[in-house]
Design a protein around this nucleic acid. Structure first.
Lengths: 407, 407
DNA sequence: GGAATTTTTCTCGACAGTCGAGAAAATAGA
DNA sequence: TCTATTTTCTCGACTGTCGAGAAAAATTCC
C-alpha cells in the first residue's frame, strides 16, 4: 500500500486483473471482461490488444452463439505461451507433471525414491534427471519452461526456495533455487499449503467478506494449511508448522527429535507405536506402509482396546491442536485430506473431545469438518494455480513490448 | 490487489504516501518529501498544494537553516484539523485521552469503574458521560472529533466495533458503533493489539524484509498481539486469543467458563489460586489487587514452596503457549508488558522450560525476550497512530475539494 | 435478397495524473 | 550590487482510463 504509484502501475494492475479473470473464469469475451473487471470497454481493448501482441492471449472465434448481433470473440490464455513443471516430493516417490500456460496437464510420471542411497546429493541428481526426462518425453526446450514448482512436506523458506526441515531429509537443507540454477524460476512450497490453496479455489464462488479455511493433511506426517479468501478473489495461504507444534509434554519422541509434537501422537508412526505398546521414547519408524495401518484400524474396529486407544489419542492430539489453531486464527471450516481420512471414524471421537475443550469452540461452536481424500489432485491444482498466477502477474508487470517474443 | 485501478486511485495512493511520511518523520520540506516518497518534485507540489487547500497540512517557515540558498519550508499536519478521543477500558478504571491531528496529547483523565453496578447498561451511560466530559473540559465541539478509538482486553470484532467477549463484561456483547452512533467514527481494538502496534512503531527504523514481533501482556488476564512490519513501513497487527488458548487439560477453571486456558494458570487469579492451594475447579476471583500479588511474590522469593511453584506453573503455561505460537507463526522476538513484568524473575524458569520443548525453538533458537513495563503508554501510542493513520487514509481518498472545509 | 435490428467490438477525443527540465525565488557570501 | 547556491514552482510531454459514438457482423423481417 505505502509505495509510490504511477500511471504505468495502473496499467500493470489492470492487466493483471484481466489475466486473473481469464484464469478463473476461462475464456471470456470483450464485454464479459469489461463487466467482470469493472474496466471500461476501451481499456479492455487496450489491454487485450497489448497482451495479444505479446503472444499471451489469443482469440477464439466462437462458432455461433445463437443470439443475434455481432458474435462474441472469446479471449483466452494462449496454451503454448509457455509451460510449468511441478514436482511433488513425497516420502516414497517423486511425481513430475508438465502443464501448459492454460493449466492443462500434458504429461505425468513418477519415480520411486531410491531408499538404497537416501543422501541429498543423490536425490538432487535424481531430481535433475527427472526434470530432464520430463523435457525429453515432451520434446520440449528448457527455455519454454516458465517455472519449476516444487512441493514437499516440512518447513520451507519460500523466499529462497530452501527446504529447511523435512521428514525426508531432516535438517539437510536443500537450496532448490541454487541447485536448479539453470531453470528460469524455481519455487518451493509446503505441500499442505498447496492443498489449502486448491480448496480455496474450489470454495471461492460463495464470496462475501474475507473468509478462511484450513486443510489438515493426515498421513505419515501431519500438515496444516490455512487459506484466506479475500473479497477481491485473491487467495493468501500460509502453512503453520502444525505437525510439530507441542501437543503435550508426554515424552513421546517425534522423528524431528523433539518430544510431544502432535505428529508423535497423530502421525502414522505415532499411532502404530501406541497401538503396539512400544515405549514412547523409541525412535519412530522411517516409514509405515498403509497396509500396516489398515491392519491396526481393522483390529480397532473389531474392538481391540489398545488399537482403539491409539486412534483416540491421535484424534485427541489433533483436536486439541486444532482448538489451539482456532483460538489463534479464529473459527474456520476444516477439510481433512490424505490417507489418514480412511481412519476418520476411529479418530473422530478424540478429535471432537479435543476440540470441545477450548473457549473458542464454546463461543463459536464446533468448526465444520469435511473430508477430501484425494490429496494428490489438490496438490497439483494448487501448484498449477499458484505458478500460473505468479507468471500472470510477472507478465503484467514486464510489458511485452517486443513483437513475437514468444515463438 | 485484484481490483480496478485508475489515475484517481494513483493520486489517492500518493497522497496517502505523503501523509504517512509526515506522520512518521515529522515535519518535512518539499525536497525531503520528494526524496522519502520517491515522487517527483512536481508531484509533491501538486499533492501538498491540494492538502494545504483542504486544511490538512500547513507550512512552517523555518527560522534559518544556516546554509545558503533558498530556505526550506516545512510541511506538517495542521494540529487543529481535528481531534481524536481514545478510551482505554480496564477492569478497574476507564481512561479518556484527547489528542489533536498531530498526535499531541491535550487532555487526559480517568474515571473509576463503578463496582456497585457492574451492568453494561450502566457502563454505557458512564461511557457517554465520560466522552461528554472530555469535550466539555476542552470546550470542544463533537463535530471536531474525527474518531473515538476504544480499547479493551478480550475478543473484539473490529469490523462492527463490537466487544464479543471480555473479562469485564463476559458474554454481554457491546456494540460500540451502535451505542455511540452520534460520533462520527467509532473503532474498537484489542488492547494488546495496540501494544504490538506501538512496539512495531518503535522498532521500525531497522527495516529490511517483512519482520514480526509479539507483545505479551501479563496481568489479571493474559493478552498477545502480533505485529507484521512490512518493508513498506506498514504495520499489520492481529490479536490472537492467546489467553484462552488451551494450555492443558488440567481441569483448572478459567473465568471464561472453559477449563485449562493459559490464563487459568498464568493470569493473576490463576497464580493466586495455585499459591493458596485453592482447588483448581474453584470459580476465580473477579479481581486481584496488585498488592496481593506482590505478597505472594515476596513469599516465593523467600523460598515458600507453593508460591514459587505457582509462578513456575504460570511461566510454564506461558512458555508452552508461546512455543505453540512460534510454531504456527514462525520465530519472532517477544516483548513482555504489563504489571506481570514485576514477577518475571519468578516466571522465567518455567517460561524457558516451556519454550525449549518445541521443535520450532530447537531449530531457530530461543526467541529474544525483552520487557517494557509501561503498558499504558504503549496502548496510547497504538491508539493514536492507528486512528490518525486511518484518518489520513480516508482523507487521501475523499479529496477535500471544497474550500475551508475544516474551520 | 436486401433493409432493419441487434449486439459486440473498436476508435477518438477529453480528462486525470506523473515526470523531467528548466524557470523563478530566496538566501549567503564576495 | 552581483554571483553562487539551494529550494520551490511551473510548463509541456507522456501514459493511462473513460464515455460516446462509429464500425462490424450477425439475425430477423419483409
Amino acid at each position: 500500500m505505502l509505495t509510490r504509484s504511477s500511471t504505468e502501475l495502473v496499467r500493470q494492475q489492470n492487466s493483471a486483473l484481466v489475466l486473473a479473470a481469464l484464469r478463473r473464469q476461462g475464456a471470456l469475451s470483450h464485454t464479459e471482461l469489461s463487466a467482470r473487471t469493472g474496466l471500461a470497454s476501451a481499456t479492455v481493448s487496450a489491454i487485450t490488444a497489448e497482451l495479444e501482441r505479446g503472444g499471451v492471449l489469443e482469440r477464439q472465434e466462437q462458432a455461433s452463439a445463437g443470439g443475434r448481433g455481432r458474435p462474441r470473440v472469446l479471449f483466452r490464455q494462449k496454451r503454448d505461451y509457455g509451460h510449468i513443471l511441478t514436482v511433488r516430493i513425497s516420502s516414497d516417490a517423486v511425481q513430475y507433471s508438465l502443464a501448459d500456460y492454460a493449466g492443462m496437464l500434458i504429461d505425468r510420471f513418477e519415480e520411486p525414491r531410491q531408499h538404497a542411497d537416501p543422501s541429498t546429493a543423490h536425490f538432487i541428481d535424481a531430481l535433475r534427471a527427472g526434470l530432464a526426462k520430463t523435457l525429453q518425453r515432451s520434446r520440449l526446450d528448457r527455455a519454454r519452461v516458465l517455472e519449476v514448482s516444487i512441493s514437499s512436506k516440512g518447513i520451507v523458506d519460500p523466499a529462497s526456495a530452501t527446504l529447511v526441515w523435512s521428514p525426508v531429509f531432516g535438517l539437510d537443507e536443500i537450496d532448490f533455487a541454487g541447485v536448479l540454477g539453470e531453470w528460469r524460476s524455481v519455487t518451493l512450497s509446503n505441500e499442505t499449503l498447496l492443498v489449502a490453496h486448491a480448496l480455496g479455489l474450489r470454495a471461492e464462488p460463495a464470496s462475501g467478506l474475507t473468509r478462511r479455511l484450513a486443510a489438515l493433511s493426515l498421513g505419515h506426517s501431519v500438515g496444516l494449511g490455512i487459506a484466506n479468501l479475500h473479497a477481491t478473489g485473491e487467495i493468501e495461504v500460509s502453512a503453520p508448522n502444525f505437525g510439530h507444534m507441542l501437543h503435550a509434554a508426554d515424552g513421546k519422541v517425534c522423528r524431528c527429535g523433539a518430544q510431544g509434537c502432535i505428529e508423535a501422537s497423530a502421525g502414522f508412526y505415532g499411532i502404530l507405536r501406541t497401538a503396539f505398546e512400544v515405549p514412547p521414547d523409541t525412535i519412530p519408524a522411517k516409514f509405515v506402509p498403509l497396509a500396516e495401518m489398515e491392519k491396526i484400524a481393522q483390529r480397532a474396529r473389531q474392538g481391540h482396546r489398545m488399537s482403539e486407544y491409539a486412534f483416540r489419542q491421535a484424534g485427541l492430539a489433533l483436536g486439541q491442536g486444532l482448538s489451539r489453531v482456532l483460538s489463534l486464527y479464529g473459527s474456520m471450516p476444516v477439510t481433512i485430506t490424505g490417507p489418514g481420512t480412511r481412519f476418520l471414524d476411529l479418530l473422530s471421537r478424540g478429535l471432537e473431545e479435543g476440540l470441545r475443550q477450548s473457549q473458542q469452540v464454546r463461543l463459536n461452536g464446533m468448526p465444520e469438518i469435511s473430508m477430501v481424500p484425494e490429496e494428490a489432485t489438490l496438490v497439483f491444482e494448487g501448484h498449477v494455480d499458484r505458478a500460473l498466477t505468479r507468471i500472470d502477474r510477472l507478465l503484467a508487470s514486464e510489458r511485452p513490448l517486443a513483437e513475437g517474443e514468444t515463438a
